[in-house]
Design a protein around this nucleic acid. Structure first.
Lengths: 116, 116
DNA sequence: CAGTATCCGTTGAGATACTG
DNA sequence: CAGTATCTCAACGGATACTG
């Protein structure tokens, strides 16, 4: 995307009042320390178990992993599938809405590879 | 970008250990409630004055605007230009590194327009 | 296994008042 | 105009104990 193209885009989104701006609203939705990190991790595989996520993101605590998963479930970004076996078995995966963040992660990766 | 293309990309970035992953590192760099919102606002114009940013983002406080601007200056995303006049005059703008977030905002906007 | 409950300490953020 | 200083409150972190 060129600078010129971005300027045309931003002129368009700027017309919506600030609180109705899709960028602003999306950023607010994803506000919180772990949301994007978790969505990104979930994008790597079809499904994850709770303990698997803990290992994949070693710095998150039990409590924060649970509450972040619940919040993402609430807004239909994460799907929780429970299998009533003994021992219990739960699978977390991204919904279609969640998978729609893929292009954004791709752009973030390009930025990171260039500047970090 | 297709699903297949994302899967190839993610397989590549997953090879780097978690803490070295460019996506993860970028997300950590941008961690904080106001960083992305501020960078996005700064993307709309060539430069902003302090008071102008306050008006543009009415929900941010004086304190958080100052400290977020300082943090973004530190990592070379925001440039601060001070004019020693009376009354004081300061201009904030994005560096090239800051402007490199444009494609990401474009993807975020597309997501928001589709799902919000 | 996949959590919840509790408590407590630390850090991030908000509100208000004030200043070079 | 462009901020600081200070105080308070909410979010997050870390440990431990416990359960369907």
């Amino acid at each position: 995307m060129t600078y010129q193209q971005y300027m045309e885009f931003i002129q368009h989104t700027s017309e919506s009042i600030f609180s109705e701006c899709p960028v602003r609203k999306t950023l607010e939705l994803l506000n919180g320390k772990w949301k994007l990190i978790l969505i990104y991790e979930l994008s790597k595989k079809n499904s994850y178990r709770f303990g698997e996520l803990r290992k994949a993101i070693p710095t998150i605590t039990n409590t924060m992993l649970t509450s972040t998963l619940r919040e993402l479930e609430e807004i239909d970004i994460v799907h929780r599938e429970q299998y009533n076996e003994i021992p219990p078995h739960v699978e977390y995966s991204l919904t279609e809405k969640g998978k729609s963040f893929f292009p954004m992660f791709f752009e973030i990766a390009k930025w990171g590879e260039k500047y970090l």
